[in-house]
Design a protein around this nucleic acid. Sequence first.
DNA 1: TTCTATTTTGTAATAATTACAATTTAGTTT
DNA 2: AAACTAAATTGTAATTATTACAAAATAGAA
Lengths: 143, 143
Amino acid sequence: MYEKYVKILKDHTLKITSPRLEILKYLDEHHTHPNVEEIYSTLKKKYPSLSRTTVYNSLEILKKNRIVQSLTISGSELRYDIDERLHHHFICTHCGAILDISISCPNMDKTIQGGHRVEEVQGYFKGVCKKCQTKEKGMNNNG
Amino acid sequence: MYEKYVKILKDHTLKITSPRLEILKYLDEHHTHPNVEEIYSTLKKKYPSLSRTTVYNSLEILKKNRIVQSLTISGSELRYDIDERLHHHFICTHCGAILDISISCPNMDKTIQGGHRVEEVQGYFKGVCKKCQTKEKGMNNNG
DNA sequence: TTCTATTTTGTAATAATTACAATTTAGTTT
DNA sequence: AAACTAAATTGTAATTATTACAAAATAGAA
Ligand SMILES: [Mn+2]
Ligand SMILES: [Mn+2]
Ligand SMILES: [Zn+2]
Ligand SMILES: [Zn+2]
């Protein structure tokens, strides 16, 4: 059940703890780029002793070890992604959903830009998602 | 002195007010991608009645009118840029500086990605800036 | 089993942003 | 030029996300 996540932690010589395993499992099963609150409130139900601070601490350590990546796309809160590979994201300003965008980008692999050492690259698109556009059109027929 | 900013506001049929003119002037003279606090605390000195809320409100309206753009690059606060053209940014995790990156990108102009309507594109690089790397090297010679 | 550095936990503090109502004012109308 | 009004400004309070911190618990080593 948790062997997969135990292995990830061991490979990074991190201690195996319940919060870390639960958080990894949650992210692995929910590729919705959740924020801390979503992760915390969901896990809190099955694991009542969990502390919000632990979720912050754990995600911080997972990020430092490049097991997860954090997205600053929303502007108000960090969103987390267990897929640490470099890929683009789209955020819908209407429903808030954050979606993966699969496009190739020549600037992704750069380790230097303008003489600066690059350690992280983020490509963000913001707008209205396909689903919300459909809803918008449907709405217009009701008035 | 302020004619340039008056024209910008008029062109967008926005009311000409002191806070708006001051904020525009500040952004025009400081291409450092400042946050609200920087703008507020600087302008407050010359314009003591200025309210922090007004800075938030004004930037919001300028953004809606595409006169400025906001960057979510830092993850803890919005940064503002009077250059509303699409360009990439680099943030130094050491000194916090946000710098413009001039590169061409084939994904910049897309108005649709994965079926979603794109209204904003942001390309972020994060790492250690040229200046901070020089400082790092210098530091090593002192131990 | 004991030990200890690390992690977890809960609470308090901080920082950024938003909500809101009262006051002021830019631009229009008279 | 005075009156009007919708919009903008202001100050304060509330909210939200995150960080600081110290005590308790515990994973993994000895
Ligand atoms: Mn993703
Ligand atoms: Mn810029
Ligand atoms: Zn949507
Ligand atoms: Zn730097």
